[in-house]
Design a protein around this nucleic acid. Structure first.
Lengths: 221, 221
DNA sequence: ATATCCTATTTATTCGAAAATAAAGTCAAT
DNA sequence: ATTGACTTTATTTTCGAATAAATAGGATAT
């Protein structure tokens, strides 16, 4: 199940990206090449290449001649990211619901099922599977919009989704039962080809998540 | 006026990106590290880093263990890019027109003026300033949406805009006088704070450009 | 005490070469 | 002629070291 990684570079990329999203590398941390060399077992050139990639995706900030830093977080940035997720995901959702074929339906049902199982475990208090749960969440949303017929849109969405995920993780806003119900209702609406309803639920889903994240953000130490 | 470049890496980045957008490096071309080393006077590690960045922006395709290629072009991709440009630029335009202050107005008027001058030269047949003209066009559209209050949105738009520009350049679709008029009408609508009108004109502006590009694309050798 | 200049140290940038992999070419067998 | 194994060449990937720049520390002057 874990991703097969051919090169040292792509292994470092996956790991560093994950470490940023899951808060192992905290916002604004200086990413010293010498240190990362040992942590991620790759040469400085390879690490640089990786950080450059992450910088152009916005997970890292590169300052000429001064090195790399984990991208900062802010209230404003969180709002921007949430708004963009609504914009991109709703746009993709519309087309996907309209165009999705049997293959899409089957994939969606499967993804929903896996997500459902993970959500039950989380609701039972099994925090050890947080990463699995979040991957299922990601794959479910991806499955919803996968028939949107625009690879460009999907790849923009993917980056924004991951940035949103970093905020989710940083405040670990378990909206629990509510978010679970929204997933079910959104999935049902999509399968019934009710585009508008699916979009409305998705927008609420993200907006409510944003609200929770914002209050957590405001009241953080 | 030309951008000050501090490092070998960023110089190579700017140049290679420009060469892809302006068609010096044509779609699907294999980008051999050894060759680029001499062309862009940088070491192979530096070139790799640059190509990785361009790959994550989508101007280059990276195939593990097989190297880098200039991103392909296709009818479908062109349509996707145009649609995304409409989505992102219209969204940004709305907020920008609503929020733009005096500073924004002044910047917009200045950018429009520079674009206007360049357009006159182009209409007079001076093709030597094509690159300048396109930069003015880019800066004008950027000025229109600059008050949208979302850096994330602006940076997504910037990448999509450049991808659209590559298609424009590849078919060199001089819609001439028409596009010129659209710029004027859109700028006026924005300054009058007529959001809807500005959005309508922008959508037409891009849609018409797309149509021209598509016919050129279909009838290419 | 504060600012300024110089020095030492850390860190980023860049390079060229070694190792690993893929592609092209060669030749024999069917 | 075409396939398949083997060899050679070309290319990518990875590394460690040389260079260049920024930061930190210390001494001096105001």
């Amino acid at each position: 199940m874990s991703k097969y990684v051919a090169t040292v570079g792509s292994a470092a990329y996956e790991q560093i990206k994950k470490d940023i999203i899951y808060g192992v590398l905290t916002p604004d941390t200086k990413l010293k090449l010498g240190a990362m060399k040992t942590t991620y077992s790759a040469s400085v050139s390879t690490i640089r290449e990786t950080l450059s990639r992450l910088a152009s995706e916005g997970f890292v900030v590169a300052e000429e001649q001064r090195g790399f830093f984990v991208a900062p977080v802010s209230r404003e940035d969180l709002i921007e990211i949430a708004d963009l997720r609504i914009l991109l995901e709703c746009t993709a959702l519309k087309t996907s619901v309209e165009l999705g074929d049997n293959e899409w339906e089957a994939n969606l049902v499967a993804a929903y099922h896996k997500l459902h199982l993970a959500e039950q475990q989380i609701l039972n208090g099994d925090l050890a599977i947080t990463e699995t749960w979040k991957r299922c969440d990601s794959e479910f949303h991806q499955a919803m919009i996968s028939a949107c017929n625009s690879d460009n849109l999907l790849s923009l969405h993917s980056v924004i989704f991951d940035k949103y995920l970093r905020y989710q993780m940083s405040v670990l806003t378990n909206r629990g039962a509510n978010a679970v119900k929204e997933h079910k209702r959104m999935c049902d609406a999509a399968l019934k080809r009710d585009t508008e309803k699916a979009q409305t639920i998705l927008t609420q889903h993200i907006t409510r998540g944003l609200k929770h994240a914002l209050t957590a953000f405001d009241t953080r130490d």
